[in-house]
């Protein structure tokens, strides 16, 4: 335990004083502030004609404003944060020849990797919590709506999911830093992974869905099942990307009016009527229930990533420095 806390403390100090971290933090902070401001000032107009608006506070985070919403921003650029914190965790020590010295101290070998992961996790948490708090504060000033207990708990769940999401990328980048000797290689590999999962999987999903279950307009109008099948295939493929998992989970959590992650629904006339007549928000427990599989998968891939780097590191020979 002693080893983990010592290493964690040192890594935290390193993170907070490193230039790249400070740069990235200011970037994210600036973007959050700007988004919050644009959304906050736009909200007043948006809500002008709504009789009884609900969950206005959450709209600070979900409303796209002019460009994108905060949660989209975190979904796309959050991974970079995880990568920056972890891509040189182990191989930097290896190339500076401090690793063999470190593991010859009376600490368990896993303390090294646990301490580093923990330090990254703490940094990520501090960052996200402060961003959410800043936006909340700014929102209070701009729109003057106080969040209720449900909104606060939704925000809290959102934070937990986001921390796990970025921790997944931290895990990936630590894995690369264990596997690759050179710092540049591991950074590039992690960024390649990020680009692949964030941008190409979404694109590839529709292409592959077209190939697997093609839809042509003439037949689709006769047989809507075809459309559904196409949509399902696309969705299954795109769920490979943690970004899809994350965005779906967070939109449901932060927007109580959304009831499903599906984008195409088969509805009878009565259902359609009831939806348009009784536009009521989902209770929190139901929202959580819908995204539960997403949450479990996110946590699972994070743990798998960490466990892999853990085992690889434990089995690595020290001397190959």
């Amino acid at each position: 335990m002693k080893g983990i806390t010592t290493i964690c403390r040192k890594e935290l100090a390193d993170h907070f004083s490193s230039t790249r971290f400070i740069l990235l933090f200011y970037l994210i902070l600036m973007v959050s502030l700007v988004t919050a401001f644009i959304v906050g000032s736009g909200l007043r107009d948006e809500l002008k004609d709504v009789a009884k608006p609900t969950f206005v506070f959450l709209m600070l985070f979900t409303s796209p404003g002019k460009l994108f919403s905060l949660i989209q921003f975190i979904a796309i650029f959050g991974p970079l944060l995880g990568i920056v914190l972890g891509f040189d965790a182990v191989n930097r020590e290896r190339s500076a020849r401090t690793l063999s010295k470190l593991v010859s101290q009376p600490i368990y070998r896993d303390s090294v990797i646990n301490g580093k992961f923990l330090a990254g996790l703490i940094t990520i948490s501090i960052m996200l919590v402060s961003i959410v708090l800043i936006i909340s504060g700014l929102g209070l000033l701009l729109i003057g709506v106080v969040p209720g207990p449900e909104e606060i708990s939704r925000l809290f769940i959102y934070l937990v999911i986001s921390i796990f999401y970025i921790a997944f990328w931290l895990g990936i980048s630590i894995l690369f830093s264990v596997g690759f000797r050179s710092v540049a290689t591991s950074a590039l590999a992690a960024i390649a992974c990020w680009i692949f999962f964030s941008f190409f999987v979404a694109m590839g999903a529709s292409v592959m869905a077209d190939a697997i279950s093609p839809v042509d307009q003439a037949r689709a109008s006769l047989n809507p099942e075809l459309l559904i099948k196409h949509e399902q295939t696309r969705k299954i493929i795109s769920l490979v990307s943690p970004m899809t998992l994350y965005s779906e989970a967070t939109t449901i959590i932060l927007d109580p009016l959304r009831k499903t992650t599906q984008s195409i629904l088969l509805m009878g006339p009565m259902e359609r009527l009831s939806i348009s007549r009784f536009q009521s928000p989902l209770p929190l427990s139901e929202s959580v229930y819908i995204v539960f599989p997403h949450l479990i998968s996110l946590m699972a891939i994070t743990l798998v990533c960490f466990a892999t780097s853990y085992t690889v590191f434990m089995r690595q020979e020290v001397r190959s420095t």
Binding site: K101, S104, Q105
Partner: peptide, 30 residues
């Protein structure tokens, strides 16, 4: 490891810290 000190060939240090900080880190690990 508690009783044995090891000085590897070409030992490395945390180059952005000063000597006392390096020593303090090692002593904390011990």
């Amino acid at each position: 490891k508690r009783l044995v000190g090891y000085l590897p060939e070409n030992v490395g240090f945390y180059d952005d810290m000063n000597a006392v900080q390096n020593l303090l880190y090692i002593s904390r690990l011990n």
